[in-house]
Design a protein around this nucleic acid. Sequence first.
DNA 1: TAACTTTCCTAGGACCTCTAGGCAATTTGT
DNA 2: ACAAATTGCCTAGAGGTCCTAGGAAAGTTA
Lengths: 196, 196
Amino acid sequence: MARAGLTAERLVRAAAELADEVGFENVTVSAVARRFGVKDASLYSHVKNAQELRAGVAALALTELADRAAEALAGRSGKEALRAYADAYRTYAKQHPGRYAASWLMLEAETAVVGVNRRHSELTRALLRGYALREPDETDAIRMLHATLHGFVRVEAAGGFEHHSRSVAKSWARAVDALDVALRNWPDEEPTKKTR
Amino acid sequence: MARAGLTAERLVRAAAELADEVGFENVTVSAVARRFGVKDASLYSHVKNAQELRAGVAALALTELADRAAEALAGRSGKEALRAYADAYRTYAKQHPGRYAASWLMLEAETAVVGVNRRHSELTRALLRGYALREPDETDAIRMLHATLHGFVRVEAAGGFEHHSRSVAKSWARAVDALDVALRNWPDEEPTKKTR
DNA sequence: TAACTTTCCTAGGACCTCTAGGCAATTTGT
DNA sequence: ACAAATTGCCTAGAGGTCCTAGGAAAGTTA
């Protein structure tokens, strides 16, 4: 009987497509096997377990995301770069909700993603170069930037913004503007001015 | 034979404890049943299905979180209120990681949480009153605030900040400071100044 | 072409979700 | 107080997912 030509890479790619179609939480070994017309036990020659398959999707997503971010940053600087970078994230998350969800859930586990994570850090650091922050401010700013962008997209994906008629796209643009303001006026370590 | 005295509420509470101990993704009907020394089929008289049980944990978490946020805001205003509010979120997430994860994953589904969500919006709106923003700015600011706080805590929980030695607590404090800066200098809708 | 390796198969165990139907513990009506 | 009605938890079982073990055929190498 003809072989299906399975590869770790093809399995991960199929899992990623599946994730975008039916949600990352529904990516199962069985479902991927079904998509190849194969029994689920057959996949275990190519991936260690379900966890590794899902981590593969996460790694793929992070790589694609880094590619897009790098492209967005090319030839831009300052606020223009910030906006392009931010939009690249949000667009990717909208186009590939399953992959994007994967990039979240797996940060914790697996060392497969550690290299890609470094790439993301470097990209963000490059972006922030336009704001001329000194350590540890730059690290703090990177963390806040990540938090805001990912947090916004995550809440949006979870439907957390649907209770209000205000356009999410406009709120997004303003949030990026506000981030730019915060970065350009980055506060001192311990502000001595009174709180009132 | 003696009855275990199951209730929907007791089940949800047990599920929440379980979530904090072993992670939200490991909260199963079987595991909760085991904790009560009961067969899993017995739970289905009290909750419709596994999804509803998990949604119950989400609702519980959101309620507890709103309680803490309200307490943090009491008698405070301006930046002091912002800091207290933010810290309440982060502290809760650290103390109850499983519940907090639940509050995330379920936003999308189930109408059980819609009332609690409204309460959160109102609390955040009260917090922002100190910054005197006018609509739609206030809505935009609420969304950014949510995004940043949740995003930060989420990335921290996922281990996304562990590749750097900088104290996460300090980065958190700076992020809150930066948010305060952004809120006090909220940008206009379409800035007319050139981008360079 | 024979030996080897790889790919996919069948079989089966363990765990989870959920339904159906039954008996016993509790509550309600008189 | 006692029968009736309700409710709580049970057993049985079907269907799904994850994963291991061992086998047979397709493809590769000597």
